[in-house]
Structures are given as C-alpha cells and as structure tokens.
C-alpha cells in the first residue's frame, strides 16, 4: 500500500529520455506499470503537451522534483506539480552532488517535513541510511525510496547488505528501490529481497528496444515478487540431494 493505494504492478517507470512519446506509451503498456514519474523542474508549466500524453496513459502520475538542489526549489516544484497534475503524490529528490546525483539527506528531511505538513504524500529518494530513513518517517513519510545505485548508472544493488538491513529495519514501511537499476535481474533481486516496488527509467528508455525491455522488466519484477511471496529457500553450505541416496532400487 502506497499512501492507501494498492497496486497490481510493482514496477514504476520514469518517462525521460525515450525516443518518442509514442515509444514511451508503448513501453508503459508493455511493462504493465501503473505508476509513472515525471519531472517538472526543467520543463516548467509550458510542458503541457507532453504531460497530456502521460495523462492519457491511464497510469497514476508520481511527479518528481528531479533537478532540485535546495529545499526551496524542491518545495516550489512540488507545489507546481500538485497544481498541474492534481495529485498529492510527490517523489521528493533533493540532489546533494551534481556529479553523483546523490541525495542531500539533510535538505531531504527538511523538505519532506514541509511538504507533509502541506498535505503531500511524499516519496523521498534517499540512501540506505537507517537514521535518515527514521527521520523521514518522523517527518511524515509513509514510503521510503532508497537508491540501488546512483541515478542512471545501471550498477544495480550496490550495497546489498545495507539494503537488506533497511528492509529488516522498516518491516512495515513500503520500500521502493529507486535508481541505479540496469538489468531485469537486478530488479528481480530487489523484489526477492522483499522490497515493495522498483522504480527505473534509463534501463528501459535507453535500451535499443525500449518496449521489449519494458516487458522484460515487468516480467522480472512480477517473478521476483512471486518468488518472495512463495518463500525462498535458504542458502546452505552443503549439497543436499533432492532425491534420497539410500534405499534406491537395485535394478541389476
């Protein structure tokens, strides 16, 4: 449940860098995603033609504050997003470093507090740091979006053990792996670890065939979730034969 909304698909897609809005639309459909995220900082209020295409996708829109480097910028962008899309959902990004696009946790918490007080449902893009996560929850966030790896890097789950700890630390908070996913296997691994959803953009948008890649990610996320729900077997140190070694029939 993401702020009271139940989703069938646990894949969320970004909408930037596609070859065309047409390809984007087909990719969304092929992926089965029900939530798409869209940036506003650069496009501003004059980007309505593109936003109309996004609205027509039928997906729930999660506007984001990508490209914002300060609390004030992020808050203003969120307010504009609410006006343009008529939604309280906001994916909060406050970038701390221009090269790694690493989130600035201090500004993030502050912006999250302001926005939740204004009635926003905040989806904060954060690191796997547990204390930052707690502060965000304190600030009113009911979802956390830890990064897998830096945005657009395709490195996958770079700090897997830290993410595992985070999952264990926040058992009742929806956790979405946001950013850094490059391959369906990485998305699937995140779902097997028990994360609630995966959000990605570049891996699909910049694939040679974005529509086919979107389909692959949709299938991987569904499979990962199904595997998690079915109960994965534990790793064992020793081989364990699945058929009995003793008492076999003597056929000779």
């Amino acid at each position: 449940m993401f702020y009271g909304t139940q989703l069938n698909s646990r894949l969320m897609l970004g909408t930037a860098q596609y070859p065309s809005p047409q390809v984007l639309r087909e990719a969304i459909a092929a992926s089965g995603a029900e939530v798409i995220t869209v940036s506003l900082r650069r496009e501003g209020s004059a980007g309505d033609a593109f936003r109309e295409i996004l609205r027509q996708s039928g997906c729930r829109i999660l506007p984001n504050t990508a490209g914002c480097h300060s609390v004030r910028e992020a808050v203003t962008t969120a307010q504009m997003a609410r006006e343009l899309f008529g939604t309280n959902w906001i994916k909060l990004e406050v970038i701390g470093h221009a090269d790694t696009l690493q989130p600035d946790p201090f500004a993030l918490v502050e912006a999250a507090r302001i926005l939740t007080e204004e009635g926003f449902d905040v989806f904060p893009y954060t690191t796997e740091d547990l204390i930052v996560g707690e502060r965000l929850i304190e600030a009113g966030c009911r979802v956390l979006m830890p990064w897998g790896a830096p945005i657009g890097s395709g490195q996958g789950l770079r700090h897997r053990e830290a993410l595992r700890s985070m999952r264990a630390h926040f058992p009742d908070v929806p956790l979405v792996i946001d950013a850094g996913i490059g391959a369906p296997s990485q998305a699937m691994a995140a779902m097997e670890m028990g994360f609630d959803a995966v959000l990605l953009n570049t891996a699909v948008a910049k694939a040679l065939d974005p529509v086919a890649m979107a389909r692959a990610f949709g299938a991987a996320v569904a499979a990962g979730r199904a595997a998690h729900d079915a109960g994965l077997m534990p790793c064992r140190d020793m081989a364990t034969a699945s058929t009995p070694l003793f008492g076999m029939a003597e056929l000779a």
Partner: peptide, 13 residues
C-alpha cells in the same frame, strides 16, 4: 531537447 513549449531565450543551464 526539452519537452516544453516555452519560447523564451536560452537558459543559463
């Protein structure tokens, strides 16, 4: 390449 219809001059960015 910006998905925008804003006609104004080039931005600093």
């Amino acid at each position: 390449m910006v998905e925008s219809a804003r006609p104004g001059p080039v931005t600093a960015r």
